[in-house]
Simulated scan of single mutants.
Amino acid sequence: MQKDFILSHVDHTMLKQGATWADIQRICDEGLSHKTASVCIPPSYVADAAAYLKGQLAVCTVIGFPNGYQTTAVKVAETKDAIAHGADEIDMVINIGWVKDGKDQKVLEEINAVKEACQGRILKVIVETCLLTEEEKIRMCDVVSRSEAEYIKTSTGFAGGGATFADVELFAKHVQPGTKIKAAGGIKSVADAEKFLELGAERLGTSSLVAMLDQKD
């Protein structure tokens, strides 16, 4: 695959707890120069990044991150705040406990409540595959497909596991047409990125792929 094609599918990510403005500014500069799909950053930096980028690159941020067990009202408030400060895309974490309890309708309602707060912006739903059984993953493919969200996303990268080829294959088999897939967490090589895209991922969440592609040149 061409380098530019891969980069156009990358959400260039910096979500480490100790991330500074210098770190965020660096990935904004890298995202701009490499024409990534977006930069994915902590909510506290959205306003600064949006002002810095001036609409030249999409700003993505995370909601209910990384555990997903905040109340729906809190996630909605977080989303409204992020949008007000300039976020273009939202990646939200579902309530994993609700999945385990079989409360799929509550998960669906929460996704749609956050989507309404997005005011037309793209919503990606993180289901944290490393914490789910195969049956639960398939159920979440159905829930996200029935929701108003645009994407199902594998992972936060903070729960002990990230995207796997098997999970992206499973998603591609079970999501409905129109629901896109984001693979995130643990993309270790350019070959991994290419494989995820071949399997059906539309976006890749990664902090290291830009540097890896530069080294490949």
Rank of each mutant, 00 (worst) to 15 (best):
F65R: 02
T129P: 10
P66Y: 14
L131K: 14
N67P: 05
A117T: 02
T164V: 09
D142E: 15
D91I: 02
K103T: 05
Y151V: 04
K106Y: 13
I152H: 01
D81C: 08
I90E: 03
A117G: 00
E169H: 14
T61Y: 12
G102V: 01
A87R: 01
I94Y: 10
V125Q: 08
L132G: 00
L57N: 10
V74K: 09
T129G: 01
D91Y: 00
N67W: 14
E135A: 15
I41N: 09
E109S: 11
E128C: 06
A166G: 06
S145W: 07
K35L: 13
L170D: 05
E30T: 04
A58L: 13
S145A: 06
P43Y: 03
S33L: 11
R139I: 06
I152M: 00
T61F: 11
C40I: 04
A117M: 05
N67F: 15
G68W: 08
L108C: 09
V99R: 05
A163V: 10
E136R: 09
K100S: 07
C40H: 07
K103S: 12
K124G: 09
D91S: 02
M140G: 00
A117L: 03
I94V: 15
M140L: 15
G68E: 08
G157F: 07
Q70P: 03
Y45P: 05
A84T: 04
C130H: 05
Y52N: 07
E150T: 07
S145K: 03
R121Y: 03
T129L: 12
A166T: 05
G120D: 01
K124T: 06
F165T: 12
A51L: 03
E128H: 04
I138N: 10
Y52R: 12
M92K: 00
I96G: 00
I138C: 11
E116Y: 12
V74G: 01
I96D: 08
A37I: 10
D167A: 12
A51K: 15
L123I: 12
G97S: 12
T164M: 08
L57G: 08
L123Y: 05
Q56A: 14
V74F: 05
A149R: 01
A77N: 11
K100L: 10
W98R: 14
A58S: 14
F65K: 01
F158W: 13
M140Y: 02
G31N: 05
E116H: 15
S38L: 01
S33N: 12
Q119S: 11
E134A: 14
Q70A: 15
R121D: 02
I111D: 01
E135K: 14
G97A: 08
Y151F: 15
I94K: 05
A163R: 06
E150M: 08
D101G: 10
S44Q: 14
A50W: 03
C141K: 11
K115V: 13
V62P: 06
E78V: 04
L108S: 09
C130D: 11
G55A: 02
K124P: 02
